[in-house]
Design a protein around this nucleic acid. Sequence first.
DNA 1: GCGAGTTTGTGCACCTGTTCACAAGCGACG
DNA 2: CGTCGCTTGTGAACAGGTGCACAAACTCGC
Lengths: 241, 241
Amino acid sequence: MPVPRAAASPRSSRTGIPDATVARLPVYLRVLTALAENKVLTVSSEALASAAGVGSAKLRKDLSHLGSYGTRGVGYDVEYLVYQISRALGLTQHYPVAIIGVGNLGHALANYAGFATRGFQIAALIDADPKRSGEVIAGLEVRHLDELEALVKEHEISIGVIATPASAAQEVCDRLVACGVTSVLNFAPIVLAVPEGVDVRKVDLSIELQILAFHEQRKAAGVDGEPGGAVPDGVRTPAAS
Amino acid sequence: MPVPRAAASPRSSRTGIPDATVARLPVYLRVLTALAENKVLTVSSEALASAAGVGSAKLRKDLSHLGSYGTRGVGYDVEYLVYQISRALGLTQHYPVAIIGVGNLGHALANYAGFATRGFQIAALIDADPKRSGEVIAGLEVRHLDELEALVKEHEISIGVIATPASAAQEVCDRLVACGVTSVLNFAPIVLAVPEGVDVRKVDLSIELQILAFHEQRKAAGVDGEPGGAVPDGVRTPAAS
DNA sequence: GCGAGTTTGTGCACCTGTTCACAAGCGACG
DNA sequence: CGTCGCTTGTGAACAGGTGCACAAACTCGC
């Protein structure tokens, strides 16, 4: 019975920080930043948790993965925690970002304040349409897709944001990866294939809506999920092949 | 200090379909739709899984939650499966959607083809800026925020998309909920507080980037943990189709 | 009609993440 | 200086999701 451990490491856990925690840290960071701007000095796990929409125990466990930065009986020092979370997320470093595809969505992304204020600098705007080349968006000139490789190298870009149509996404992704980009944020409605070692995160607007539709349907139908009377359509037509 | 109370989302799944499965069904649906357009009649779990970027066992388990719609020794009928997944997600129904906030992002959303092609119809575009009222985007006239309640009732809108600045998001959300909207897709970088029974999903562009930055940092720092494995974590690479 | 080859559906063990509950630690106050 | 109240940090139980392996079931070829 050849059933070895397989030792497959499905997810990252070598850092000691679980993926689920990493996904929540930016939320904490945002809330803490807002608190700091309001001159709040310390915050308890209870208050911070409710502001972030999570349970207090979960929050404490999340923060404990970064180290013991709280004070018992008092809470967490807001500024210090901001710094520690930023540090854990790697935001103390400077990551130049390239946006490929300057359509409606690319426009929105280029103007999105949330990038710049978090330490991400948009270093290149790239589009395949020559008519767009030269256009200035958010103070940056749009360059043609041909220049992608040169721009990535010039600005040492390590994160690429794909906002192209689905048909172009895979090719753009391949080219990004070929010239050293190891992290991709994909807005195109397609599953990207990338070699190992490259991180891809996807943001899919229609998927989120579909998930909402599911819950909406469930609420509307009550718990009565009877599929009876199903299949009124003659959809099942496995034509002879 | 007025810390917003956030309703913890128990995310109870009473349908029998796990949340994790629901989140993947739209991906399967998209791949299947593409296959159908290519005149593919049946597909095996292996092929579908690799195209969707998941394991085949996981895919089969996901589909088994909808019922036994496969044929052993053959695979799944593409068209039939499209229908069944659409039905499970509630896409056979018609969900009018309102977009509040017609800035850069709202523009992009209004023009996003992924909505209309999945059965979602944008029934109202709303903005607080009077100068935008009357502007026509994607064939729909922008209306003023004052008309929100009337529009929601008129079009029987049950899903609201918030694309406003963060400062306005909570108020808009409250008003949507007050007139019966029970599902909200939030693009504003803020944690919305909603009463129980209301579903909120958030899409946060900067959070995704921060998660990427974390992984990027980890890769840059060297993954010299163990000489044997030392496999940089990555994304499953689906076979390109 | 029957066996060979496929592919689904699923029981089971593993693992990640969540929740509970409480001891340890810190500040305040008398 | 001791005691008390508050909050963190964490061990342990719990829940949900994932991957493996295999029996059941279907088609095809003969």
